[in-house]
């Protein structure tokens, strides 16, 4: 039985990969419990490398391992993996296009208590902008497991955005998965909501509420943000009267930006973004409360869709 917790699903998946392929290694910067790479440590101590609280060194060390034929998984909080070690990630890993997997855990606002220094609002923007990088963000732990199963063969670096918490199951368990896929998980003809990560479940909540008002909503799970399947985005954006993007990330440079880049030179319905305004996070007593503060709720998605349909 799959745990609804993304971290656990990640850790268990990593162990499966380790069993399948001896080239899988894990690198950690004293956050092994938060990232659940401790599961890998218990199983494969000889391939688990505690690098201390030194993320920059860890990132380039992973590059060296990949250059010597391994498939390293680097772990840190999303904010440190993409920010603190950005130059190492860019130059050591992405320039030579190495198969390093960067697990950005506690992504978005999911580390609700620790506040702005530990919450990542701009990681997708950073990772999208760096050439050669693949950016994935699972909507639930079922998708997390399927994604991880693709990590042995995927060429080049991958950034995996991992939420810290339990997420509702929203993706169909039996549907085949591949990196790069943009999936329609709910049919609808009036509104299209492109969502990623936890916001997929919020979009489904919005769709259910809108249905009661006679508004039919299409929900699209964009779990691979880069490379974005432009054809699929254009196809799913067609024929509706309103388009909403929803992400637990800054309004600048994330999913909304990616969708609009895909829709250039294509006529489309009015678009609005749901995301975090151009500001850092804040400490909160719980995750739901923090999400609500930034308008990252099913209600907000529904309200935005209604407003767009009314021409506001």
């Amino acid at each position: 039985m799959t745990s609804p917790n993304l971290r656990n699903a990640y850790g268990e998946s990593l162990v499966r990969l380790g069993k399948k392929d001896w080239r899988v290694t894990a690198l950690e910067a004293d956050l092994g419990k938060s990232t659940q790479s401790v599961m890998f440590q218990a199983e494969f101590p000889e391939r688990y490398f505690q690098m201390g609280i030194a993320e920059q060194d860890m990132m380039s060390t992973a590059a060296g391992m990949a250059l010597a034929g391994m498939i390293p998984f680097v772990h840190s909080f999303a904010v440190f993996a993409t920010g603190r070690a950005y130059d190492q990630l860019r130059n050591s890993i992405c320039v030579p296009n190495l198969p390093v997997r960067i697990c950005g855990s506690s992504a978005g606002l999911s580390d609700f208590g620790d506040g702005k220094t530990h919450q990542s609002v701009e990681d997708v923007a950073l990772m999208r902008a760096v050439p050669n990088m693949t950016v994935v963000c699972p909507a639930d732990s079922i998708e997390m497991e399927k994604m991880m199963a693709c990590m042995l063969d995927r060429p080049g670096p991958v950034y995996i955005r991992v939420n810290r918490n339990d997420l509702p199951f929203v993706t169909p368990p039996d549907e085949p998965y591949k990196i790069g896929k943009v999936t329609k998980i709910r049919e609808g003809g009036d509104v299209a909501v492109f969502a990623t990560g936890i916001m997929v479940s919020k979009a489904l909540g919005a769709a259910a509420a809108l249905e009661k008002e006679g508004i039919s909503t299409r929900v699209i799970n964009v779990s691979t943000i880069k490379p974005l399947d432009r054809e699929a985005v254009i196809r799913y954006a067609a024929g509706v009267d309103a388009i909403v993007t929803a992400e637990e990330h800054s309004l600048i440079g994330g999913l909304g930006s990616a969708v609009m880049e895909a829709l250039r030179r294509v006529s489309h319905a009015p678009v609005e973004f749901i995301g975090i305004p151009d500001q850092f996070g804040v400490s909160a007593e719980n995750y739901d409360g923090l999400m609500a503060r930034y308008g990252l709720t099913a209600e907000a998605v529904a309200a935005t869709a209604r407003a767009l349909l009314k021409g506001n």
């Binding site: 001896w22 290694t25 000889e46 060194d57 060390t61 060296g64 250059l67």
Partner: peptide, 12 residues
């Protein structure tokens, strides 16, 4: 750091 990673991988 890259050299450290190589040496660790080569040891594996």
């Amino acid at each position: 750091s890259i050299g450290v990673g190589m040496a660790l991988a080569l040891r594996c």
